[in-house]
Design a protein around this nucleic acid. Structure first.
Lengths: 238, 238
DNA sequence: GGCTGCCTTATAACATTGTTATGAGAAGGT
DNA sequence: ACCTTCTCATAACAATGTTATAAGGCAGCC
């Protein structure tokens, strides 16, 4: 259909895959449907990706790239804790906007789970085997680093700390998408959990609550009113 | 094969499903394989469950029942925080023992995700639409209640607090099963996260660490040596 | 006993989907 | 011009969920 005939069938297959995944869900990602979408036969899937698993993996990687861009669009302010919370909300927004897409990305739902996302993210150094996934996680780590630099939480290896936050977020969004938390999950579960985790990491309760409030008020007034800066106070406890 | 012919094909199908799921993974849960396992034709699936989706749901419920029993086997002591941590470790053990089974249970991996687990767990009252799932969550809530009664964390509605802990656990185990945390996930991520969350909920850091240590020493010395009781100290902060 | 009605089940077929074999065509280099 | 390599369309095969159909079996009742 679109695009020159002899051209990148690869890219067009992945593009079509993204489009179908986001519109019709993971079940739409079958060989015949995708091939028809780019006006080719199913063989294209095999010459370029070796099979549906390879194409699924390519689609997953591209989704992670877009996920990373979505998170990157969150503005960074001079309150890194508020930024961390904003990042978490953006993460949640992306997942809630299309839960099936997220489940597909992490290798679960849909036609046959694709291979695991990565290995030893924490073990040796930082990176995972999939740079696309790592780029998403890195934004979390970088923000944690800034929170530590600002003296809001105890100085420590930021990677495991980011992993704690990631675990919480990941679990929360997966449970929320299956309806476990009803309609008020963010105020009743996610927000308190985030504050509690921050306090446990060393932030003062009033400071953490303040960053949360500043975020909430910024969400109500989208563009104007520069966020009231929360002064870090003093060193984290212990 | 086994069992009287005219008898509960229902139960035998579910039993075979559990067996195959735990031995060969979710891909083994197909109509022909299951029917052959009980010496019947695939029609049995349709007369008793309306289709594979119904059988999958029945298998999921039974797995949750067993999951609940597994958690129930964790001994309760007079340190409810240590019990909560032990419950978390047992949760993690069950998942790590067979990650594919857990993913199947929560409606993700395998041949076509089955319907969502439940709705409005937090919204109205406590229960979800699936009592089997709720029974698992309830153990968490009950332990949180005991932690509050012992004065270790702030008194509050225990359900959202348990939901925070559940989110963390759920996210952690799913990330660990795909290899993100390498080999030391528990000491570097899960244990610190649990302590941090507890501290944020009001426990004193030394008390939380103490409960964690008592648990670790109990794990090394399986049967003997009654766990050194951690005195609750005084009221939680604020 | 024999009849009726409902539930269960075996057989067989169909639709969908992943996959592979095969051969044709295009592109590029020598 | 010829060869090699890559790409791709056609067609077929295997696995799986599902359904139609008809037979078997069992309970209840006359």
């Amino acid at each position: 259909m679109a695009g020159r005939p002899g051209e990148d069938a690869r890219r067009r297959l992945v593009d079509a895959g993204i489009r179908l995944l986001e519109r019709d869900g993971p079940e739409a990602l079958n060989a015949r449907r995708l091939a028809a979408e780019i006006g080719a036969s199913t063989m294209a899937v095999y010459t370029h990706f070796g099979g549906m698993a390879g194409l699924h993996e390519a689609i997953m990687k591209e989704e992670f790239v877009r996920f990373g861009r979505h998170l990157h669009a969150v503005p960074r302010t001079d309150d890194p804790v508020a930024d961390l919370l904003a990042l978490g909300l953006a993460y949640r927004d992306f997942v809630l906007a299309n839960p099936q897409r997220y489940r597909f990305m992490i290798g679960l739902t849909g036609p046959g789970a694709h291979p695991p996302i990565g290995h030893d993210l924490i073990g040796e150094g930082t990176p995972t085997t999939l740079p696309e996934v790592n780029a998403v996680f890195e934004q979390n780590v970088e923000t944690v680093r800034r929170v530590m630099a600002a003296g809001r939480i105890r100085r420590d290896d930021p990677v495991p700390v980011a992993a704690q936050i990631w675990s919480m977020l990941h679990g929360y969004v997966l449970l929320e998408t299956i309806g476990v938390f009803g309609r008020d999950g963010v105020p009743t579960v996610l927000a308190p959990a985030a504050v509690n985790l921050l306090v446990g990491l060393g932030d003062r309760p009033e400071a953490a609550e303040g960053s949360l409030r500043s975020l909430a008020s910024a969400a109500e007034a989208p563009a104007p009113a520069p966020r009231p800066k929360v002064r870090p106070g003093r060193r984290p406890r212990a």
